[in-house]
Amino acid sequence: MIRINLGAEGLGGVRFAVSPLDSAKDLIYSLRRTPQALSADWRARTREALVQHRLGLLGAVGGGGPCGYAPDFLRPESQGFETSVDAALHRVATAPTERIGYELALAVNGHPWDPASGEGAPRPLLQALDRGERSFAHRLADEMAQFWHAALEPSWPGIRARLEADVSARATAIAYHGLADTLNRLAPNLAWCDGGLTLRLRPGSPHGLTVDARAVILVPSVFVNQAIFCAGEPGAPAPRTPLIIYPAAPADCLAPSGEDRLIGATRARILAELSEPRSTAELAQRLYLAPATVSYHLQILHRAGLVTRERRSRRVLYQRLGVRPRLGGCPRLGGGPL
């Protein structure tokens, strides 16, 4: 688990950003670590770009080292809402050498707050390290540029529009329902509580990290299915603002329908998922909601006679009764109980 303590000052520094280079890194990382988060088309396009352009080092480093850690200097800190590709690539190539060395050591040996997997470091990474940190950064910036133009640039206008729409929808949710509620709905493994953000690591990980921060940068991505923490660990050289990548809402979920407003968007989404029996935990994961939120709405739906409830072994499963209106299955971007 990662805990980011913000307090009043840090909460005032929370901001959103959109980054084309972040999206490129998310695409490479997801291909190796969570390929189910990508469509078949994006998996094929990513592999084709890496193979045809011989981007072996980028594939090895961007996909994560032995423990899944991918160096964060590939994801430069956004200075404004959006950083151009050329500016971001320049910052990759000129990253502080002490930061590069620190992150490459983590990529090879594993992160001290995350357990090692026993997997060996990729050979392209070890070979490139022999030429030194600056040469390593220049080569990665060059390979990232080739990958960007081959795989992502043709689709970027549409992706950017969706990311900007997501941020606009979050801003509206903050205005209507508050920042804390909106933060709680960004990702299934991210929660705001007691003056900070808590991000759950992969199941079974016994390790954790606590960060005291004055700000957090939130970056939506169409290529991830859960929140990812980057770059804010204490004690690192050339310290950076903590960065959280979160899954952008689907394109057709950025404006509520009249039917959703009729019975409430949250309960409409839950009903849409209950064409087959599902547990509270399954619904929470599919809808990017906290289990407690799902449980609250399930109780209301059950009392209203809209869902059935059945215990099977240690699980309680819910299923929809009757025929529902067309309500979609979109994550709610904000709001209290409906």
Rank of each mutant, 00 (worst) to 15 (best):
A116D: 12
A150N: 07
E310Y: 04
N109A: 15
D130L: 10
V216H: 03
A292W: 09
L179Y: 08
G204V: 14
Q299M: 06
E48N: 10
F223T: 00
D72G: 11
Y288M: 06
E276W: 12
E233R: 11
G13T: 08
I217E: 05
G178S: 10
R75C: 11
A236S: 15
A173P: 04
L6Q: 05
G63M: 06
T241W: 03
M1S: 10
E9V: 14
A8Y: 01
L274M: 05
F16E: 04
L58F: 09
G196A: 05
V14W: 00
P71M: 07
S78W: 00
L186F: 09
L209Y: 05
R43W: 13
A265F: 03
G329D: 14
P112N: 11
A107H: 05
L179D: 09
R312P: 00
L306E: 08
A145L: 06
C193P: 01
E310N: 11
P291S: 11
Y296H: 14
A238K: 06
N5F: 11
G56K: 10
G101A: 09
G120T: 12
V219L: 12
L57P: 01
P157D: 09
F147R: 00
L338Q: 12
R54G: 10
P247E: 04
G258T: 09
L190F: 07
R269M: 15
Q299L: 07
R314D: 12
A49R: 02
E98P: 03
I263R: 11
R269Y: 12
F147D: 00
A236H: 10
M144T: 10
R278F: 00
R332L: 09
Y318E: 02
L186S: 02
G335F: 07
W148Y: 15
V51S: 10
R269V: 14
D194H: 14
G258W: 12
V307D: 00
G196F: 00
P237V: 06
R99S: 07
P277K: 04
V294G: 02
I245Y: 01
W192Q: 06
R75L: 14
G13Q: 05
E273T: 02
P112Q: 11
V323P: 06
G158C: 07
A116Q: 13
P20I: 08
